[in-house]
Write a protein that binds this DNA or RNA. Structure first.
Lengths: 265, 265
DNA sequence: CGCACTCTTGAAAGTACTCAAACTTAGTGG
DNA sequence: CCACTAAGTTTGAGTACTTTCAAGAGTGCG
């Protein structure tokens, strides 16, 4: 790993080792993030993905500050007033809803570049918990500012709609998984999806370190933790994976995809 | 039922028995709907809900036309280019996604005042099928026009975000249902939700006519049609419902809600 | 009136769950 | 440094639930 220019923020006290772009001088005393969107190394997978350089630059004043969240602490909780979206900068999150009967359901896992918080727009209150699964850092995006800005930029406006639409479509995929798949199909889908997202972020993807417990995977997949564990063991026995606790090495991705699609019914 | 003023549209050939507001003269020959949003009787549950009278009026040019869809025909299909959202005016729809293995999953049922089509924004192609379950009529809302208009109206802009957010939250609820509930809890949740939405539309809600088959309910709930049927029979035996095919009378809604919440685990 | 479709019900099979115990790993404090 | 603890994981055995397969009944349309 090579040394990179380090910029740090005197207010949120975060240190940015990732970007080579130094922070600009804060205008009128406002707190500015160490790195603006236009210079962020996540810009191609985060909120600004695909935007023109011009539209990206317009977003720079948007990210008000960074926020650090320690492992197992909430970024927000059900019932918290909604004011902003969050872009994961480093780390890993889960979001989960709690049913009336007290049952928890993990609705998603979010990694660098992914956005959190859309659940709160409709009621102005967050409707799920967002919990960090490792020490993490997020960019805080004030939502009313995002709306204001997007009224001046059709490109940014459409971007927001696209991202929310994709979240809806993603959830359709989860419903497909929960609605009809067998345990092993579910786990295979989950792993292939994780693999895909890791590759987008430049990881080889043959080997990965799971950030969540078997129970959290199970909750997401609608399975009990024992069933998840058994499915992992099955995949290992069949030579698809090498599993050592949370270390998973994918040995036969094609077979994994086959498991995922082969609806025996 | 009392006679209401009837306005009909010479282009889409639809007849509107619901509204008492007559169509205005079409400007510059453009096709105008029989009833604009500002005068629509669904305005308090549809896209304009909660908007100021002013914002509502700004929406009037938005609804380009009406479209009729016959029972079992698609409003749109997976892969169709996305150009507009649809507001259900009369009738009933289901949306369903098809997995890679050819399995279908119903992702939702939509009734009057509810919006369809958000799935298409992200990729500019629709990612699910929307099928009419009875002869239906929708208002076509050109999406680029909606975006243009919402750049001039913070209120309308926020409305779109709210509606998409609520769709995300709704799907969280479905994930909770699919992820952890037993068959009878699922069906009870489904019925209570349907009841709620019918009441919002002014129906008594003790009695309802299901528009979908047991198989479609099962697909939505992640169950086989036989299991849905058995659960209906169970509810009837227990005196919660009176079921005659698709006619369902709710006899004990409190008990139904109890079934829904009582997580034995 | 008959055919097609949908719904109901029964019996058997299969899948995931529950309960329980042993094992691994990481963190803590003596 | 190591024992100890707590949390997480694996595995087994028995159970509960849903599915599958099958047959029959009800409903609606041509």
């Amino acid at each position: 790993m090579q040394p990179a220019p380090i910029t740090s923020c005197s207010i949120c006290r975060t240190v940015d080792r990732l970007s080579s772009v130094a922070a600009e001088a804060p205008p009128d005393g406002a707190h500015r993030p160490p790195v603006a969107c236009s210079g962020c190394n996540l810009r191609e997978i985060c909120l600004p993905f695909g935007l023109s350089a011009e539209a990206r630059e317009r977003m720079d004043p948007l990210v008000g500050r960074r926020r650090s969240v320690r492992r197992l602490e909430p970024l927000y909780r059900t019932g918290d007033p909604f004011s902003s979206l969050y872009a994961v900068r480093t780390g890993f999150f889960k979001t989960c809803v709690t049913g009336a009967s007290g049952r928890d359901q993990v609705t998603g896992f979010q990694m660098a570049g992914e956005l959190l918080g859309f659940d709160g727009i409709g009621t102005a209150l967050h409707t799920c918990d967002a919990i960090a699964l490792e020490d993490s850092q997020v960019c805080v995006i004030w939502f009313d500012q995002l709306e204001t800005l997007s009224r001046d930029s059709a490109e940014l406006q459409h971007q927001i709609h696209k991202i929310m639409s994709r979240e809806i479509v993603r959830e359709h995929g989860v419903m497909l998984l929960l609605g009809g798949m067998r345990a092993e199909e579910r786990l295979a889908s989950f792993l292939v999806n994780l693999l895909h997202r890791l590759r987008l972020r430049g990881f080889s993807g043959s080997s990965m370190l799971l950030r969540m417990t078997r129970e959290e995977i199970g909750s997401y997949l609608g399975l009990k933790l024992e069933t998840v564990s058994r499915s992992f063991s099955k995949f290992q026995d069949d030579g698809l994976l090498e599993v050592r606790q949370r270390n998973v090495r994918v040995l036969d991705e094609a077979a994994l995809r086959r498991v995922m699609h082969d609806a025996t019914s």
